[in-house]
Design a protein around this nucleic acid. Structure first.
Lengths: 191, 191
DNA sequence: GCTATAGCGGAACCAAGTTCCGCATATGCA
DNA sequence: TGCATATGCGGAACTTGGTTCCGCTATAGC
């Protein structure tokens, strides 16, 4: 229940907003150096707040991750339709978009792991990333499928899930996520 | 330093051996219901031993996992050459073998995740699984490559790494690891 | 049987996530 | 401007799970 008896809600306190942005900055910084599983106490200390303040603003780690990466996810989502109109073929657009998505993932240490975690706390992360990006992917798949360039019936959710998985551990020297993703893209083509 | 002054080592105590097999059975059971990250205390309780006993026999979780699954890994490794002689083509052998590997992984909740963990504790797991299976995979890849069925230059380690990744979360209802692996196998073919 | 010691159990310690509550302070109003 | 009150804060305390360590027990070898 927010607000006074009269029903008109008191506006959010200034310090609360300050803390929220401080937390976002601190989290972004912590994620860069320690990955998205950076200890809560770390982030709180960086932001100069108590741990309780993190939980008040971002009840689950997923909420914090979503908030930190929202801009980049939006950019990726918006790139889909653009690529579709600008690319030579739908398959080329699909390939470009997937590479964009992969680039996003591999530069966020631990994000790919988190994305696929079945831990309930990551439900909102899962939901946001996929709800925002799966339709875009589906549109690209559909276009390429209609053009007869790829095998039909591929589910966008499954594909993104798989692409995400392939990006796990992408910073290991004896692995090459992009190569594997490339194999998948090649495997999509009709032969 | 083990043994008496005279240099002849005292043989392993009977209770020690008993505990080791009890632990293996308990761990196998725990892995089935809770995945390979089942709490140490759980496994110890199941086996009717103290936690210290686990660490004495299996210093890291990876050691325990390796011990539990050794038979199945060996079977998979040995299947490679057999498939190569019995299959119609090297590519068919490769595909069959990969499916075998995938079947092994997807039925072990959490094993695929553990396989790719960069945590130092999982080093021996990584080492054992890959050292045992990568050469087999390399042989199959080589045969298929020589036969001109697949694109050349694919590194077995990278491929297995990727296949392992694709198997993460295979028990989720909205994912299909086998489909994704199938795409990779298709992507390997020359066109 | 006796002795030396390998091996055992589990308490204690550590790391991280999460909850909760007394306290501080910003807001809205007089 | 000063006051009342709800909002929001900090961080201690609790939980869970891994890891270490040490006094004690039971076995192997004689």
């Amino acid at each position: 229940m927010t607000g006074t008896e009269s029903g008109v809600p008191r506006k959010q306190r200034a310090d609360s907003r300050r803390n929220e942005t401080a937390l976002l900055e601190a989290a972004a910084a912590a994620f860069v150096v320690s990955g998205v599983n950076a200890p809560v106490r770390n982030i709180a200390a960086r932001a100069g707040v108590g741990v309780g303040t993190i939980y008040r603003h971002f009840p689950t780690r997923a909420d914090l991750i979503v908030a930190v990466y929202r801009h980049q996810v939006e950019a990726c989502a918006e790139a889909g339709p653009v690529l579709l109109t600008e690319s030579a073929t739908p398959h080329a657009a699909l390939a470009s978009w997937i590479h964009l998505f992969v680039d996003f993932l591999v530069t966020k240490h631990g994000l790919a792991e988190a994305m696929r975690s079945d831990d309930a706390a990551f439900q909102t992360l899962h939901a946001y990333f996929l709800d925002r990006l799966v339709p875009v992917c589906a549109e690209l798949l559909d276009a390429a499928s209609t053009a007869g360039e790829i095998i039909p019936g591929i589910d966008a959710l499954v594909l993104m899930h798989g692409i995400g998985n392939l990006c796990i551990g992408a910073d290991s020297p004896d692995y090459d996520a992009r190569l594997m993703v490339g194999l998948v893209i090649a495997g999509l083509r009709v032969r």
